[in-house]
Design a protein around this nucleic acid. Sequence first.
RNA 1: CGGGGCGUAGCUCAGCCUGGCUAGAGCGCUACGUUCGGGACGUAGAGGUCGCAAGUUCAAAUCUUGUCGCCCCGACCA
Length: 573
Amino acid sequence: MRWSQTLIPTMKETPEGAEIPSHVLMVRAGLIGQLMAGVYNYLPLGLRALRKAERIVREEMDRAGAIEIHMPALTPIDLWKRTGRVEAFGNVLIQVAVRRQNKQVHMALGPTHEEIVTDLVARYVNSYRQLPITLYQIQTKFRNEERPRFGVLRTSEFLMKDAYSFDTSAQGLNASYDKMYDAYCRIFSRAGLKYLAVEAESGPIGGDASHEFMVLAENGEDTVVHCAACGYAANLERAETGQRAKSPASGSAELKKVPTPNVGSIEQVSKLLKCKPADMLKTLIYVADDKPVAVLLRGDHEANEGKIRRALKATKLELAPADVVQQVTGAPIGFAGPIGLKIPLWADADVAAMGSAVVGANEADAHYTGANLGRDFTVAADHYADLRNATAGDPCPRCPGTLELRHAIEVGHVFKLGTKYSEALDARYLDDKEQQHAAIMGCYGIGVNRIIAALIETTHDANGIVWPMSLAPYEIIISPINVKEAAVAEAAERLYRELTDAGIEVLLDDRDQRPGVKFKDADLIGIPLRVVVGGRGLKEGQLEIKWRHEAEPKMIPLAGATEALAEMVRQAT
RNA sequence: CGGGGCGUAGCUCAGCCUGGCUAGAGCGCUACGUUCGGGACGUAGAGGUCGCAAGUUCAAAUCUUGUCGCCCCGACCA
């Protein structure tokens, strides 16, 4: 492609409103342009990169045995009603109503396609002989984001690869899941991303496994817990913490009631009593399956409701409303403490290691100082558990290492679904004993736009994007120093023609611009290999080449340059 | 949905507080000339209902109210 004949609107200045590197660079390099909040035009360079990512995804899905289909973005609202997801999605689901011959027809723009694919399978799959099958598509999804942000990382319309597996057994599901997991690893490796497959919360539905594929990035919206020593990685909801203190520490301070008028939060009390939050005991009153319980945490720790729910074996868990707290503790919210409480006490493992602590006094405007576990209150031995979010510095659950918290961009998610959708939408098959069963499903998503954004976010430099060969919009950029010099222009044209004929994707910067402008633009748009054609080199029969990720250029002979360059591109792919 | 910020030329912004003549700069764009190995220089030019609406005033980019849009922090996010 000739630069002069396509549309690459590069810009020098940082666009207003773009904050993070991937957003700034995608706009500055002319990949995308904003149409409205959370909705972007893809310009030629951006589209080419997106198509490259899409191709990698498609090749690896096909290799893994998944079958490509295409489902519509326009979907009947009825399907979403049957699975209860009109409510579940709420405002995120973009609904449209149109008029057809005096009738209202209700539709929704697909935010994901579990309903559609399950309905499709229900129509055509009747026998175990047709299973297992994994169907996928690469298609535009619509979600009304309350707050779109970060350029292309969180948008209301985006390109997603979504795959759905249908199996007849849990083992079958596991096999389908593992195939997708492996395919994802290949996809993200080929895209040049440094990713982590982290254990993720699978929620109340579905099996025991779910993994998110995360790219560590300063500006990521998600938090992952990571152990550099052994590679353990999980998202914050799921992360376990390592073995912590078991034997109660002994505190010796005297139990004393102190007034704390109108001061209930950990932060306020610690300020008033001049103690660290870590020396305070947080007492949270929960209602678990309609029964109140108290959960004790160190003051600086955060409750993890998923862990609490599992520890208590509760199906329903929520923080107690004010009237329940009043009734159980005899005090308003903010003054609950373990001493004298008549409801079951549960404690996070770290509570056992606390000495004398500050606790609520179970009466308004008062706390105790010097509360000692074992002397002033007790927690049953089997009521200690991991009940909190991991924090930086916690021991790793898998090795003697230490956990750290890192921001990350979620680029993919694999998930065991179970039979929620197949039952709701009657995707049933007949087994060899003529028994009907709902198919066991898994679902697997990749945010294709996010592959591009995450790559740029993690591998740019001060001058612009640095594409890997696999995603680059063009593999080689030819920059003639001066297109008005006939010898230079001719040599550049010939090289362009020969490389293109050799199947290389080449961008010829044929603009009548000064060299500085071309170099800056070439760096900005990040094409992996730059070939400079200049009068000086030509006289000596030389071409200058420079890899985008290297600092120094080198010279190669003009004779045989086409073959040499094509070989370099092949090597780098 | 709570809190904060911003809408002036294609882009980035100044001017607004303290109302006053034909509304400015840099970049980009057009023409011509000189240039030509890391965002050149000169000359001439094109380009703006100051987001929109109403109000106050002799007079509004500037003050007031409303409205629309965009961005940031938080909440939310299958």
